[in-house]
């Protein structure tokens, strides 16, 4: 890392399709620099990667045609921190139900997800999600024993059907996991980039090496 960027990680945001701008703004709020990723060369030197919301089938095809699929898979295999929201969660999962047969996913997260599992657009909803026992390290800005619930927006969202033992459930809604972490992989069924609460991006910034105090603002 070059001088001057210490504590301000450079995070790539996959920019093939979807709500890229909101992630860039959220990353800036938590003290990260960002770079739009449209081709393999854009990945050079990133400290983390965001897979945004969008249409997972479209993203899967564009990842293939650009050669980014294999490049990202390689980096994830090396432990690059990654945040996937909604379609990004689908891309990270190990198994996708109700997807297209040719839809590829990275398998970086030991989770089975059902695409559009909450229904069509008219079932899209807003809710407050409860933070689980796993939140501790990342969500320290609430009262020690009872962090504030997280406002969450679910858009034709995937349902996390099951997770492996190695996956920590950080937040859930009616008993169903909606924010999960497995080492360097953080993923949500909802869109933290669409609300003003920056705790999810703040946690991710820390995973990418953001320095203490760099997340202010």
């Amino acid at each position: 890392m070059v001088a001057g960027s210490v504590g301000r990680p450079l995070v790539g945001v996959l920019a093939l399709q979807g709500d890229v701008r909101e992630h860039v703004a959220a990353l800036a709020d938590v003290g990260c620099r960002s770079r739009l990723v449209k081709r393999v060369g854009d990945l050079a030197g990133v400290d983390g990667l965001v897979l945004p919301g969008g249409e997972s089938t479209t993203l899967s095809m564009l990842l293939e045609s650009t050669g980014l699929f294999d490049a990202v898979a390689g980096l994830l295999g090396d432990g690059l921190p990654v945040l996937g929201t909604c379609a990004g969660l689908v891309l990270l999962a190990s198994e996708v139900l109700d997807g297209r047969p040719d839809q590829r996913c990275f398998g970086a997260l030991a989770a089975v997800v059902r695409r559009n599992g909450y229904g069509r657009q008219q079932q899209s909803f807003e809710a407050e999600v409860g933070l689980g026992v796993g939140f501790g390290d990342g969500f320290g800005d609430g009262p020690a024993d009872l962090p504030a619930a997280l406002p969450a927006v679910f858009i034709r969202a995937p349902v996390i059907v099951s997770v492996g033992d190695e996956v920590d459930v950080l937040a859930s809604l009616e008993g169903v996991p909606v924010l999960v972490r497995q080492g360097p992989v953080l993923a949500s069924a909802f869109h933290p980039e669409l609300t003003a609460d920056r705790r999810v991006h703040g946690l991710f910034a820390g995973m990418c090496g953001a320095g203490a105090g760099a997340g202010a603002g």
Binding site: L16, G53, Q121, V153
Partner: peptide, 11 residues
């Protein structure tokens, strides 16, 4: 949530 779907279709 209405606007959210429009956002997800961007690009």
């Amino acid at each position: 949530v209405k606007r959210g779907l429009a956002d997800m279709l961007r690009g």
